[in-house]
Design a protein around this nucleic acid. Structure first.
Lengths: 237, 237
DNA sequence: AAGTGGTCTAGACCACGTG
DNA sequence: ACGTGGTCTAGACCACTTG
């Protein structure tokens, strides 16, 4: 047993959920049944399901059961303009010694990437791994994918940014120096054109303790009552 | 005992940390000591500290101890333009029946608000409580504060938005229908002028299960290589 | 009545850090 | 050698839901 029992168990259940063997809405076996099936104790089952719950894969219903979540996710959307590069962000955040290294490779597009970029089987994409450290401490690692020959975000109109607490993949874990059970801050970015064509996607993992809050600071630009007004407060005077 | 032992214990420790009785950097008493001091078992202490860790109040160091976190918070900043009101957001998110109700009162500014708005002792602020529901289910509750006579976000140049998982106050808990131990999604917003004067602050709590990811979708506007370019990818062609 | 998840007890062993 | 936090066992009682 390489990992702790509850991590192994959680990974096993997660793979059953993601593979569809446990479809959305299904009630998981009861704690007692899971204890018996995996030959572990109360707390191992509970911690395994803690991890699933943190990933949003299951939902606990006291006295009813643990249910597989539906994958339709309600998200918070907010329009935004402008952005800055990772390096700029870090330099604004920290006085430390920021180092960024990059590996670029062309790889065969996986089914998921083919779907994202509307490519054909056999097409390749450019894969960039970016590792950033802050005074020697790992600050982030990201995988960025884009169709061959595209130049970054040229032509992008939309940027969609999603984050969640999630488990990192082994490569990200190794760089960040965290164990398999540790939840990291994961940001997924998708740059796309005005008509919805994806130009670039990026998955970034941050150490769980680098940010304890995420802030979006937005320049609203010169604003007066005609240009911009929050309807919530329009009639208060 | 109104709440579970681990919630009571966590609240007690949290108040000691926030009051400064346990200053940043201090090592908490060991698990064994805490078990003895509170007269509880292993798991109660661990769950209490789980809650503190989730709030970012402490940091666990295996085989060394549990330490009170420093309060300097590193945050992620990203410039953004435009925004929409809470009601608009909800209507985009949901097909349900959105109801929003609002209570407005003028109250004496607390020290914290006086500091935020640079007011004098005895000055009042406008306090708005906004409750939103989605098909009868509570969707959010917020407290908004602004100096008397100001009209919402008129004149705002910056919007800073911070979120974290945190415990809600009793009023928010009651509306959201969650227990004291439940962590909710908390968003703190600060609108300010170009020179940093705060115009309005708002604290919003969402049910923990409403959003399982936060997405910021940003319109970058018409972009070409001269107007906008991600320096990370500038030299890839 | 039986089963569920939530909470809790009272122990145990382990790997690692500090004296 | 001892104490630490991390993991785990093998039970227990409770409040509530379901057949």
């Amino acid at each position: 047993m390489a990992e702790s029992a509850y991590v192994d168990m959680s990974a096993d259940l997660a793979s059953k959920i993601r593979s569809g063997e446990y479809p959305p809405g299904l009630r998981l076996p009861s704690y007692s049944d899971l204890e018996a099936a995996y030959g572990v104790s109360n707390i191992v089952v509970r911690r395994a399901i803690d991890l699933l719950e943190l990933q949003g894969l299951v939902k606990r219903m006291p006295r009813k059961g643990v249910f597989v979540s539906s994958q339709t996710r309600l998200i918070r959307v907010s329009p935004e303009r402008q952005m800055e590069s990772a390096e700029e962000t870090y330099r604004h955040e920290s006085n430390g010694n920021i180092k960024v290294e990059r590996e670029v490779n062309d790889i065969l597009a996986s089914p998921w990437l083919r779907d994202e970029f509307k490519l054909s089987e056999g097409d390749a994409v450019t894969h960039t791994v970016t590792r950033a450290s802050d005074d020697g401490k790992p600050a982030s690692i990201s995988d960025t994918y884009q169709p061959i020959g595209r130049n970054g975000t040229d032509g992008a109109y939309w940027l969609e940014e999603t984050w969640r607490d999630d488990m990192a993949n082994p490569v990200h874990r190794a760089w960040l120096g965290v164990g398999i059970g540790t939840l990291v801050k994961k940001v997924h970015q998708r740059w796309s054109t005005r008509d919805g064509q994806t130009l670039m996607v990026s998955d970034v993992s941050y150490p769980p303790d680098r940010y304890d809050a995420f802030v979006f600071r937005m320049a609203l630009g010169p604003i007066d009552s005609d240009q911009f007004r929050d309807p919530d407060f329009r009639t208060q005077n």
